[in-house]
Computed example of a mutant assay.
Amino acid sequence: MNRKNVARLLLILLVLITISSFFYLPYYVSKPGMAQELEPIVDVTDADEANGSFMLTTIRMGKANIISYLMAKWSKYQEIYPESAIRTEDETDEEYNVRQLHLMDSSKTNAIKVAYEKAGKEFSLQYKGVYVLDVLEDMPASRLLQPGDQIIQVDQLKFGSSKEFMDYISSKKAGDKVHIVYKREETEKTGTITLQSFKDDPNRVGIGISLDDYKRILTKPPVSIDSEEIGGPSAGLMFTLEIYNQLTDGDLTGGYKIAGTGTMAEDGTVGPIGGISQKIVAADKSGAEIFFAPNEKGAKTSNYREALAAAKDIGTDMKIIPVDDFQDALDYLGQLKKK
């Protein structure tokens, strides 16, 4: 083959690769992300500095094109998921992002509550309204509300939980109108919505939103968490450890680089997450020496067992520590020999 034909073939391949990178498939691909130190992100007023560090771990998730799909097929620590496993039916990109950021906000609230409770510090929770996660296209709310809006009042009534809001709406009938006051970002707006029966359940009426509680936590001393655009609830445990470490005397890290993952419930329970094998890879690449993994009460398919298998496979010296709740992590750190 002469040079001209080779150049022509290479040009054709380049064009095909470029085109395929813009052709998206009904799948998502996840891969190892990063381990990020939390001390620069979490700020408790007048906190001491730590010699070591607590780190959150992430995975990178994106819509699959032809190239990323094929690469994931050949990569041991990349995973392919159908769209239905990542997004709910009819959920838009905007709604998915709103849901992930709200999960992160809820995770931070729980982390602050558990850390301040354990440290014996002052805090209070304020219910701020109903948080709109997504809006059904064929329901009346779609003409007024957007994901991320906060409903703060209905018919001059304020509620103490999203359940109270749902109970009030369900007490009405199709065709009734409700006047709502809501916030979009920092702007207060008003509107009227006519209730409608749900197609899949004609005996149930509503406005057509998926919702959650929107809470704000007030603390003394003040704390702030700058998580930027990181979404999801999986950093709950590590946020709790970093906040507690800054609230209390001494240094829980013992001078070690400590990564981990797991959701944080209001009662301190650590819950499982997805992609823990990829997080083991990310933590190892970042030089973590210890990794906390949800134990799920010793279940055979627990995050902890999956993390152990991944750690053995990549040959890391990182210690994998099982935890069922926040106290388990504190107990381990309490007996850790300091560097």
Rank of each mutant, 00 (worst) to 15 (best):
M1D: 14
L10E: 09
V15T: 13
I19Y: 14
S21C: 14
F22M: 13
F22V: 13
F23K: 10
P26M: 08
Y27D: 06
S30H: 00
S30V: 00
M34L: 14
A35L: 05
A35K: 03
Q36C: 08
Q36D: 08
L38W: 01
E39H: 11
I41M: 07
I41V: 14
V42D: 00
D48F: 12
A50H: 02
N51D: 15
N51E: 14
N51K: 13
G52Y: 03
G52K: 00
S53F: 02
L56F: 08
T57L: 04
I59M: 09
K63Q: 07
N65A: 06
S68P: 13
S68T: 15
Y69V: 07
L70C: 12
M71Q: 15
K73V: 12
Y77I: 04
Q78P: 03
Q78C: 10
Q78K: 14
I80S: 08
P82A: 07
P82N: 05
P82W: 07
E83P: 03
E83S: 05
A85S: 12
R87F: 10
T88Y: 12
E91F: 10
E91W: 09
E95A: 14
Y96P: 01
R99K: 13
L101W: 04
T109L: 05
A115F: 04
E117D: 11
S124H: 13
S124L: 12
Y131M: 06
V132A: 02
V135Y: 00
L136D: 06
S142M: 12
R143N: 15
L144Q: 06
L144A: 06
L145Q: 02
Q150P: 00
I152H: 05
V154M: 07
D155I: 11
S161Q: 04
K163H: 01
K163P: 01
M166L: 12
Y168V: 01
Y168D: 01
I169H: 01
I169C: 02
K172W: 04
K172C: 05
V178L: 07
K183G: 03
K183F: 06
R184V: 10
E188T: 15
T190K: 12
T194F: 06
Q196P: 04
Q196S: 12
S197E: 13
F198N: 08
N203V: 13
V205A: 05
S210C: 09
D213C: 03
Y214A: 05
R216L: 14
P222L: 09
P222S: 14
D226V: 11
S227N: 09
S227I: 08
A235Q: 01
G236Q: 02
L237M: 07
M238L: 13
Y244E: 01
G250V: 10
L252F: 04
G255S: 09
G260Q: 02
G262R: 01
T263H: 02
V270G: 00
G271M: 06
P272E: 08
P272Y: 08
I273M: 05
S277H: 05
S277A: 11
S277G: 12
Q278E: 10
K279R: 12
A282M: 06
K285D: 10
A288P: 03
P294A: 14
K297L: 09
A299V: 08
K300C: 08
K300H: 12
T301I: 11
E306M: 15
E306D: 15
E306L: 14
D313Y: 06
T316H: 04
D317K: 14
D317E: 15
D324R: 06
D324H: 07
F326C: 04
A329I: 04
D331W: 08
Y332C: 10
L333Q: 03
G334N: 09
K337I: 10
K337S: 10
